[in-house]
Amino acid sequence: MPEGRGFAPQYASVQHRDEAAEIGIWVFLATELLLFGGLLFAYFVYRHANPAAFAAASRHTDIVIGTANTAILLTSSFLVACAVDALQAGARRICIMLLIGAMLLGLLFLSLKATEYAGEYHEHLVPGINFSFAPPLADGAELFFTIYFVATSIHAIHMMIGIAVLAALAIMLRRTASTRLCAALRTAALYWHFVDAIWIVLFALIYLPGRSGA
């Protein structure tokens, strides 16, 4: 694979540059983990204070869309991991097709999420805009849906950024591959997988509680 534009003067070698990129994205992901960590913390505190309301509110989320979206994200992550492997094996065109597949799945995720938001609006589950819930649990359910909308919309913004980054890389890969682009793709892939892992935790905390009718 060609060296492309090579490496900046602060690096001793291409390998040094790629190691710095990988460590750099992990440092960034640590800060991202704390961003979502604050949301998780708030979730656990309010759930502890309102267990029945959180279970009841959770039953109002759309388990079918939530489960489908989880499968979609897992599959998109699989495609991105394959794209990295394909590029390293010199299969540039296959890599681009895998990236396009991952982006389409990302867009499908976002459109299903938008459908879900619309459904929740019609069911009067949007705090601050139109919210009504069976009286004894209304306050706790409003807390649940506030956290739900903040967490899932921040997650959706991450998805949009991820799709844009993958698109930019797919366009740059059209002509030729380079070790620099390969390192960039590995970095973008780590971000994509991280956003996928965050969704898995959100899915368990948002959609699954209260399903057994307890």
């Binding site: 992550s77 699989f78 991105v80 991991a81 892939a189 780590l190 997988h193 991280f194 996928d196 892992a197 898995i200 935790v201 899915f203 368990a204 905390l205 699954l208 509680p209 399903r211 057994s212 009718g213 307890a214």
Partner: peptide, 30 residues
Amino acid sequence: LAYLPFGSLNSTVAIVIAAIKAAIIAAFFM
């Protein structure tokens, strides 16, 4: 498992499985 009545164990099961899934992603995809 979320639909089976395990009482308070339901949320523990959900969180443990989520952690296993995240670990698989970190170990092999990442």
